[in-house]
């Protein structure tokens, strides 16, 4: 490779458009719990500053719920090749992960209640490292199943656990 300026490109595939709904709902639920708790406290006659905190957090919540899901949708991408799995995730902070297919130990799909409703799935790819698995969140169910099949076929061909 020559001395030019190089950088990582974005992985090819986007996740499902419905993932935006998933992230929105999840963020909204989290905020409702927090704001609801503070709201009850405020209504029951908590100290004055609760009202100010509540107002501040409400603004943050609106911005977060409005901005985060679409931002994530632009960032979250994935790609599999016969040699490697390549993902990008995050929104403000972004993270690229790369795992060679020969070092993959397990490939799972998981679906939470919300994901089942939206027909989405999360693919989790573990290696022998304690650094944690690669996750591709918000995939269409059928796409997730196809990835698992593909990777299962390729990883079976490679012996050893690469530790």
């Amino acid at each position: 490779m020559d001395d030019g300026e190089w950088r990582l490109r974005a992985p090819v595939n986007l996740v499902s458009k419905r993932a935006v709904v998933q992230w929105t709902v999840r963020a909204a639920i989290g905020w409702i719990v927090v704001l609801g708790g503070l709201g009850v406290w405020h209504a029951l006659g908590g100290p004055d500053w609760v009202g100010h905190v509540l107002a501040g957090l409400a603004v943050a919540a609106v911005v977060h719920v409005a901005v985060m899901p679409t931002w994530r949708y632009r960032v979250h991408r994935w790609e599999t090749t016969p040699a490697a799995v390549f993902t990008r995730s995050g929104w403000i902070n972004q993270e690229w992960r790369l795992a060679p297919v020969s070092r993959i130990q397990t490939v799972d799909t998981g679906r939470g209640p919300l994901q089942q409703l939206l027909k989405l799935a999360t693919v989790t790819i573990t290696t022998a490292s304690a650094a944690g698995p690669l996750k591709i969140e918000g995939l269409d169910e059928s796409v997730a199943a196809r990835i698992v099949d593909e990777l299962a076929t390729t990883t079976q061909a490679v012996p050893g656990d690469a530790t």
Binding site: R97, A131, D161
Partner: peptide
């Protein structure tokens, strides 16, 4: 056995990244 590349907005502006090698050994 894999790579992780992380970039915060500040790092993006400074054109820096944190490159992490993952391994089965030691701290992982």
């Amino acid at each position: 056995i894999g790579w992780r590349v992380e970039q915060s907005p500040f790092q993006r502006r400074a054109r820096l990244v944190t490159l992490t090698a993952t391994t089965a050994a030691g701290h992982g």
